[in-house]
């Protein structure tokens, strides 16, 4: 089997696997909706108080809320993707088997995670957006071009998200129990992705820092594209920003992986 086909099969497997969790998906949608509603009302109050805050009008702010709920699973801000399984395999030592597989470890998990993301983009993304659109006044673009540009930004976001979580998973080689690192990662991700509050509302230097960190590629970047804030050269800059973080973090991931592999070999598996 060609490598391309192998990874395609792994990705398809990831998609199928998550598509079988029907009740969990429905329950997750319910949660997204509840949190979306709570958040939406606080944003309405906030933008009532300060119209045009962060360069968004109220409709854009509400779009941001529901987009955040819709992307939460796809870009795995709260974790819950491949890394749980990978950490478990590191913990039990099964990872040694993976290392001897002919497939590349990082590419393998990336393919599986891409499959998961594709499912969650559809399964967990569409309903919150539709609900938000029906119940609140939100501002969705009408031209296909913006939507297409948005999808590209989402996939770059998934890539950055994977690269970060891959590093988190690898940390389990050094920490016997990955829960602490995972929790810290979720926290940082929640805050700096803009899931708590849009990053352009963050004040001063904190805002600048937050917008420069990789997590802003997960939600803030796709949101700005969807809300029509990034076009032409600005759009390319956004893509370049996301891609640069993705490439950089994936490369770091490879370095750490080889260090971890040496560790496994030294320990004798």
């Amino acid at each position: 089997m060609g490598t391309g086909r192998l990874y395609a099969a792994v990705a398809a497997g990831g998609f199928r696997r998550y598509s079988t969790y029907r009740v969990a998906t429905a329950a997750g949608l319910f949660t997204n909706t509840v949190f979306g509603v709570v958040l939406a009302y606080t944003y309405i109050a906030l933008w009532d108080e300060r119209p045009g805050l962060g360069g968004y009008d109220q409709a854009q702010a509400l779009t941001y809320v529901w987009l955040g709920q819709g992307l939460l699973s796809a870009v795995a801000v709260m974790g819950g993707g491949f890394e749980d399984e990978m950490i478990e395999r590191i913990r039990t030592g099964d990872i040694a088997i993976d290392l001897y597989r002919p497939a590349d470890l990082q590419a393998w998990w990336l393919a599986a995670d891409a499959g998961r993301a594709a499912f969650q983009l559809l399964g967990r993304g569409v309903v919150p957006m539709a609900f938000g659109g029906l119940v609140f006044h939100i501002a969705l673009p009408t031209d296909a071009g913006t939507w297409l540009a948005f999808l590209v930004a989402v996939w770059l976001g998934v890539l950055v998200s994977f690269a970060i979580r891959y590093l988190v998973a690898l940390s389990a080689f050094w920490f016997m129990d990955g829960a602490g690192v995972q929790q810290l990662a979720v926290l940082t991700g929640l805050f700096f992705s803009g899931m708590v509050l849009p990053l352009n509302v963050f004040p001063g230097a904190l805002g600048e820092l937050a917008r420069a960190l990789p997590w802003s590629a997960l939600l803030q970047a796709p949101a700005d594209v969807l809300l029509g804030e990034r076009t032409g050269f600005g759009l390319l800059r956004t893509y370049a920003f996301q891609a640069a973080w993705a490439v950089g973090l994936l490369a770091v991931g490879r370095l750490v992986q080889s260090a971890a592999t040496r560790r496994v070999v030294v320990q004798g598996g």
Partner: peptide
């Protein structure tokens, strides 16, 4: 898992303070 415990205590505090 002491190291992890210390981290999760901090994580819980910081995580809930995020709101």
């Amino acid at each position: 898992y002491r190291a992890s415990f210390a981290m999760t205590v901090f994580g819980n505090f910081a995580g809930t303070a995020l709101d």
